[in-house]
Amino acid sequence: MSQTLIDLALAEDIGAGDVTSLYFIPEERKARAFVAVRKEGVVSGVETAARVFATVDPSLDVEILIHDGSKVASGALLIRVEGSARSILTAERTALNFLQRLSGVATMTARYVEEVRGTNARILDTRKTTPGFRLLEKKAVADGGGTNHRIGLYDRAMVKDNHLVAEGGPAVIQAAIHKLREERPGVEVELEADSLEQVRTFLSMDGVDHILLDNMTLSQLREAVEARGESHKPFLEASGGVTLATLRDIAETGVDFISVGAVTHSAPSLDVGLDFTPV
């Protein structure tokens, strides 16, 4: 999947050819370059960026110096690449685009993870990802210490408010859970609740793995945890209105997971550059 994205990204950037490098850089010119971070953070996409250089020119000597998931200081060198100056310059922007975006996701995730340290809550991502980038962005979340929610519509049944309206009531939902269990036993089931009454109804059902507590107050979250009791099943996931300012209080209610769409849809890019040295 990442190779497909690399090919698409290079095609849209290079088009009919890198005219700047072709006309202003001698074909025989060799160079050494280092990909370096300009600001501290957690890196992700290093392997992808390295593959961009190798895709543009397999003859380039590309060495990964720091791997995904590493916390780095400003100035840290991530990749060394040597060979054709033209090839390095042609690959530069696409490689940095992947690396900046994915490291931004990992860095923001790490901030959220640090905020809940010492509680039982884990940070979840969502499906609010850049189209086509989901697997890379989900990996970036994991590199930042977060936990991946479902990857897509196929690996977990998540019955949300619109599904509940369409389904027709608890009995119909329970029958659907039983059918899913019979036909796809490896698929987990999550039900979305926007009231404590719904939470209690879902807790009484068989086969529910997760309950999503949608936009509930702190007191409602605590009541939901108390209603579940000591079994710790199903898992309880808080969602909606989560920010760094509210995160700790939510975690301390006792929920198991907190889903945060912002770690993928609103993460600022980490500043990464390429230091180029002719040889």
Rank of each mutant, 00 (worst) to 15 (best):
M216Q: 06
V225Q: 14
R228M: 07
E226D: 06
N215T: 05
L212W: 01
N215H: 06
I211E: 10
L203E: 00
T246C: 02
Q220T: 06
E230Q: 14
L212F: 03
E223T: 12
G229C: 09
L213E: 01
T217Y: 00
F235T: 13
V242M: 12
E223R: 09
D209Y: 09
S204T: 12
S219F: 02
L203W: 00
K233Q: 15
L213P: 05
L247Q: 04
E230T: 15
E237Q: 10
M216H: 00
N215R: 08
V208C: 04
E237G: 09
L244Y: 08
F235D: 10
T217P: 01
T243N: 13
I211D: 12
D209E: 11
L221P: 02
G241K: 14
A238V: 05
E223S: 12
K233W: 15
L213T: 03
N215D: 07
L218C: 08
A224K: 08
G207P: 13
L244E: 09
K233C: 15
P234D: 10
G240S: 07
N215C: 10
D209S: 10
L247E: 00
S204E: 13
G241C: 13
V242L: 13
N215I: 06
K233F: 15
F235R: 15
M216K: 04
G241Q: 12
T246Q: 02
P234F: 11
A227S: 14
A227E: 09
M216E: 00
L213A: 04
L203D: 01
H232G: 11
D214C: 05
L247W: 01
L244P: 09
S239T: 14
I211W: 08
G240D: 13
G229I: 10
L244M: 13
R222S: 02
N215K: 04
D209K: 09
E226I: 03
T246M: 08
E226Y: 00
H210P: 00
L213I: 09
R228I: 04
Q220G: 10
L236E: 12
M216I: 06
D209W: 11
A227Y: 02
V208H: 02
L244N: 07
A245G: 08
M216N: 00
L203G: 00
T243L: 15
E230K: 14
M205A: 08
M216A: 04
H232F: 15
R222C: 04
A245F: 04
I211G: 08
L213F: 01
S219L: 00
E226G: 02
D206C: 03
S219H: 06
D206E: 15
T217I: 05
L221G: 04
R222M: 00
S204G: 14
A224E: 07
R228S: 08
F235N: 10
K233D: 14
G207K: 10
D206N: 12
A245L: 05
G240M: 09
L213S: 05
V242I: 15
T243V: 15
V208R: 01
G207E: 07
T243Y: 14
G241N: 14
M205I: 10
D206A: 12
D209V: 13
V225C: 13
D214T: 04
M216R: 01
G207D: 06
D214V: 01
L203A: 00
V225H: 12
D206Q: 11
Q220N: 13
S204R: 14
L212G: 03
L247K: 02
M205K: 02
N215Q: 04
G207H: 12
R222Y: 02
E237D: 11
L203F: 05
A227G: 04
Q220Y: 10
L212D: 04
Q220S: 15
